[in-house]
């Protein structure tokens, strides 16, 4: 065979190139939508900002005020933009983690919140707050530990002799969730009364307390986690069809499982430490990604990450504007959208 012929044979197939193009186009469109959302949602809020001047300031990355007053400039760059960026990181993290869990556990209903993994991370965060209140770094660290412990507990509980059925997994999630909820209530009683209300809000998923120092961490973990899971997408495609089959076809099942558990727990841990348990993002977004782009994880994971970011930005904008000047926790909005979809998926499964 001549070298040119073998080059052609070894090159990506026409079908692969079509899929790759589909991935790039959909990710480019979602990125554009995400950037637009970041810009426009930062103009919306209880304090109206002049659109032209704000746009000008945003495009200059805050190097010029473009005629915004000091207060307006601070609202834009110190309050809204960090909150929106955190919403993006949280949404991207949760959607990616959801897509990862779904493939690994072979269950379209798997979701960090519903499996109790968010609660594990929440408990970790609370322990950090109660016992290591001064250290901001203990929060994501213990949140990650809590998420990982909850993941392993659910995985163990869900595995019957015949493997994990979808129903068994959800039941295991219910058990872990309720158990951790009661521990959380117990820990809450150890807190002083003035903090309990903000805590309850935070538990439901709340971005109003955006921490500046954790923002870069959350963004970095969201991007790195999405990359790592995307780089395992082909193994995950086979794992979706069964662990035994994946093993037979050459997937190092044990290694991929460890990677997904660690990365997904890290993603959930960092987003819960920053914003509490925002529910259903990991269910709604990967589902929509698969529905519109197919089950191939090479496409659906990056698309879910971008879509998740977009979803939480919009949900949080709703949360902070619909009853302005008061605010709703963003988790209430995502659950309002997610719970009906969950019922629909359950009926179809």
């Amino acid at each position: 065979m001549s070298s040119t012929a073998s080059d052609i044979v070894a090159s990506p197939s026409r079908q692969s190139r079509v899929t790759l193009r589909k991935t790039l186009v959909s990710c480019a469109l979602l990125t554009a939508a995400l950037l637009l959302a970041i810009v426009f949602m930062s103009l919306i809020g209880s304090e109206p900002l002049p659109a032209g001047a704000s746009l000008c300031a945003l495009i200059s990355f805050g190097t010029t005020t473009c005629g915004l007053s000091r207060d307006q400039f601070d609202i834009l760059f110190q309050i809204r933009l960090p909150r929106i960026l955190l919403a993006a990181a949280v949404g991207g993290s949760l959607a990616t983690a959801g897509a990862g869990y779904q493939s690994l556990l072979r269950n379209p209903l798997a979701e960090p919140y519903l499996l109790g993994i968010s609660n594990g991370a929440a408990l970790g965060t609370m322990i950090a707050l109660v016992f290591f209140g001064a250290s901001e770094w203990m929060r994501p660290l213990l949140a990650f530990t809590g998420a990982l412990a909850a993941t392993l507990a659910v995985y163990r509980l869900a595995r019957g002799r015949a493997g994990a059925t979808p129903e068994r997994l959800i039941l295991a999630g219910v058990i872990v969730t309720t158990f951790l909820s009661s521990v959380i209530v117990f820990v809450t009683t150890l807190m002083d009364a003035t903090r309990i209300r903000s805590f309850t809000f935070w538990l439901l998923g709340d971005l109003s307390g955006t921490s500046k120092s954790l923002l870069p961490v959350a963004i970095t973990i969201a991007i790195a986690g999405t990359l790592v899971l995307t780089l395992n997408a082909r193994s995950l495609n086979l794992l979706m069809l069964g662990e035994r089959d994946a093993f037979d076809l050459g997937v190092e099942v044990g290694r991929v499982r460890v990677v997904v558990f660690l990365v997904a727990s890290l993603l959930v841990g960092s987003s819960v430490a920053a914003s509490g348990s925002v529910g259903y993002v990991g269910l709604v977004v990967p589902h929509l990604a698969r529905l519109s782009l197919g089950s191939d994880n090479r496409i659906s994971i990056p698309a879910a990450a971008l879509g998740g970011a977009l979803f939480v930005i919009v949900a949080d904008t709703l949360a902070r504007t619909i009853i302005a000047p008061r605010e709703l926790p963003v988790g209430a909005i995502t659950a309002l959208i997610g719970a009906p979809l969950f019922i629909y998926l359950l009926r179809r499964a």
């Binding site: 044979v9 070894a10 990506p12 197939s13 190139r17 780089l231 395992n232 193994s235």
Partner: peptide
């Protein structure tokens, strides 16, 4: 094996 694409072959 991770993110690669199927070849023509």
């Amino acid at each position: 094996a991770g993110w690669g694409w199927e070849t023509e072959r």
